[in-house]
């Protein structure tokens, strides 16, 4: 009797911890590796603080960035699988970097403001967004 109950309790512990981990995963997915191997983690950290600084999350849903739950623009999960940027630009790294640096020039009147990113910053962010393709999910 007791042993049975004990097993149930043990399962409950595992279940509880599972619940927590899942709820965490849901919000903070794996920190993606924007660049392979050596510098990977540094890059993603830098990129994520750029994303937070510029406020991308205010309009876009970006997995892995705390508070990035915006619904104004499209969600940015699995960005590498996206065919177009802004509805008509082919989704190439060059286009993405240009878009991030000056969306108003590529498509005047779009809601996304020009935020004066440097090209290094834009590349870091682009790398971060494409990094999701490596994600096992």
């Amino acid at each position: 009797m007791f042993r049975g109950a004990l097993i149930i309790a043990g399962l409950a512990v595992i279940l509880h911890i599972g619940v927590i981990l899942i709820s965490l995963e849901r919000v903070k997915a794996k920190p993606p590796l924007a660049m392979p191997d050596t510098t990977g983690r540094v890059v993603s950290q830098e990129a994520s603080s750029l994303l937070k600084h510029y406020g991308c999350g205010g309009c876009h849903y970006i997995p892995g960035i705390a508070g990035a739950n915006g619904k104004v623009g499209p969600g940015l999960e699995q960005f590498a699988n996206r065919a177009y940027i802004a509805g008509h630009l082919p989704n190439t790294p060059e286009n993405l970097v240009h878009w991030l640096m000056n969306p108003q020039r590529l498509e005047p009147g779009t809601a996304m403001p020009t935020m004066n990113l440097t090209s290094t910053e834009a590349k870091l962010i682009a790398g971060f967004l494409y990094g999701y393709d490596n994600d096992a999910r």
Partner: peptide, 10 residues
Amino acid sequence: IPNTTGHLAA
């Protein structure tokens, strides 16, 4: 949130 153009727009 930090006061940047992107945040302000959002």
